[in-house]
């Protein structure tokens, strides 16, 4: 599809959607959001790009191969579970670290965030694999 309106709108929408998806990813632990919905949103951004321009440039935009994304995502998510086993807890038990960032606040980091990032990457990879393949048919 060649639509100047869509193309120029996409240029502004794309970063906003990606930013919002990361926002959803990060707030997901305590509030509605999370890796799955964030990942879907990020995938929408790329899908929009593929509609406005073409699949090839959307692939170039993604840079990484989506299969690699799925693999890395799965590794991160499993890694979040393995970390707790290294500490001696059962598989997938949550572990927390509090980082003191001077001047900002105490930041709590934990394995659920790692797990969510993994889910985010997997969802982006899987959804885009579907979308790109179907769009190229």
């Amino acid at each position: 599809m060649r639509s100047i309106i869509l193309r120029s709108a996409t240029r502004y929408l794309f970063p906003i959607i990606i930013l919002f998806s990361i926002f959803l990813l990060l707030r997901g632990h305590d509030e509605p959001g999370g890796g799955f919905i964030g990942g879907l949103l990020a995938a929408t951004a790329f899908a929009l790009y593929a509609i406005a321009y073409d699949v090839k440039s959307a692939r170039a935009m993604l840079r990484a191969d989506h299969i690699t994304l799925i693999g890395v995502g799965l590794l991160l998510a499993t890694g979040a579970g393995i970390i707790s086993m290294l500490v001696g807890d059962p598989f997938l038990a949550t572990q927390w670290v509090t980082l003191n960032v001077p001047g900002v606040a105490d930041v709590k980091l934990g394995t659920p965030l790692l797990f969510d990032i993994g889910v985010y990457l997997v969802v982006v990879g899987v959804t885009l694999m579907l979308v790109f393949h179907l769009a190229e048919e």
Partner: peptide, 14 residues
């Protein structure tokens, strides 16, 4: 766990 980790590694080494 082992097959999951290996499957993900294989995806990275596609």
């Amino acid at each position: 766990l082992l097959p999951l980790v290996c499957a993900s590694l294989m995806l990275v080494l596609w």
